[in-house]
């Protein structure tokens, strides 16, 4: 089955190049859609989208990703990940609520809307605890709060200098992880590969320079990955776990997941496995349409 695949992007990273190469090698027709150059009509799909079997959202900007996925769904064009998944994963509050609701172990978290109540939440956790922006990635603007005076300063800065989203204070317990966390790349809860990200710094994102190495998931981690994926609506996801001694806690699920670091760390052909899954999703969508018609 030859597919017409739309790749929604604003920057072609190594991740997108790996996908483009794999799709083209399989003779799929790829339409690159630069989200910065596209307009979306509320009433009808732009002609540029004619014939697309599936769209892969690889937008760097969360705001664009959220709107664009909704437009594609409105136009009846299958998009991965879905708008529902994007909306949950794009916002740390939604992400935490979904994990908690699904019974997935996740760090204790409180949300407050003023400096005063945020301070109350911080004091309840004690020091250290963590303050994160509700929207953001790559470990940016994360604060490990070690003292009351540090908390006061950070809250003051966020309240005064920040975008309104920074006035949604997302306060979390500090998890004593063993100098590393685990990134699992999964499609609809089925792991493609996993790696550990190790660093002397408390933030262990690969984007922050953490060292990566392949990791074998045990049965408990496998079950948590499936459950976390279901909790956010499934899709191509980056699920982040921390080891807590005898178990795990899932701190985040990412919906426009980068996999270049994982591709370097493991033997699995990541792009090929993702494209296998995309082909299946496109086929399932086509079958569903046929039944509906």
């Amino acid at each position: 089955m030859t597919l017409q695949v739309g790749l929604l992007y604003s920057r072609i990273r190594k991740d997108e190049k790996l996908l483009l190469t794999e799709l083209r090698e399989r003779d799929h027709e790829v339409t690159k859609i630069d989200v910065r150059k596209q307009t979306f009509d509320i009433a009808a799909a732009p002609a540029a989208f004619d014939g697309l079997d599936i769209v892969v959202d690889r937008c760097l900007a969360t705001s664009r990703s959220l709107y664009a996925t909704q437009f594609f769904e409105t136009y009846g064009i299958p998009v991965v990940n879905s708008h529902e998944t994007a909306a949950i994963c794009a916002d740390k509050v939604q992400n935490s609520l979904a994990l908690e609701k699904a019974g997935v172990p996740t760090p204790a978290t409180k949300v407050a809307f003023t400096k005063e109540t945020a301070m109350d939440a911080i004091e309840e956790f004690g020091y250290p605890c963590v303050l994160k922006p509700v929207v953001g990635s790559w470990g940016r603007l994360m604060a490990k709060i070690d003292s009351e005076s540090a908390a006061e300063a950070i809250l003051e800065h966020k309240a005064t200098l920040g975008h309104y989203e920074h006035k949604v204070f997302y306060v979390q317990e500090f998890v004593e992880k063993p100098g590393r966390d685990i990134r699992v790349l999964a499609t609809d809860g089925e792991p493609i590969a996993a790696m550990v990200r190790s660093s002397d710094h408390w933030i262990t994102n690969a984007a922050k320079g953490a060292e990566t190495d392949a990791f074998d998931l045990d049965d408990e981690a496998l079950a948590l990955v499936r459950k976390a994926s279901d909790a956010v609506g499934g899709g191509l996801l980056g699920i982040d776990l921390m080891e807590t001694g005898d178990s795990y806690t899932v701190h985040e699920v990412n919906h426009t997941v980068e996999f270049k670091a994982l591709d370097d760390a493991v033997e699995t052909d990541i792009a090929a496995t993702v494209v296998d899954w995309l082909e299946g999703k496109a086929q399932a969508a086509a079958d569903e349409l046929e039944v509906t018609v």
């Binding site: 900007a61 990635s137 980056g238 426009t256």
Partner: peptide
């Protein structure tokens, strides 16, 4: 630098990192 054309190659200064960028 962002590649805005390939035949022939044309480069422009890439956009600055925005706050909501990421994965």
């Amino acid at each position: 630098l962002e590649v805005v054309d390939t035949e022939p190659p044309v480069l422009e200064r890439a956009p600055e990192l925005e706050e909501d960028w990421g994965e």
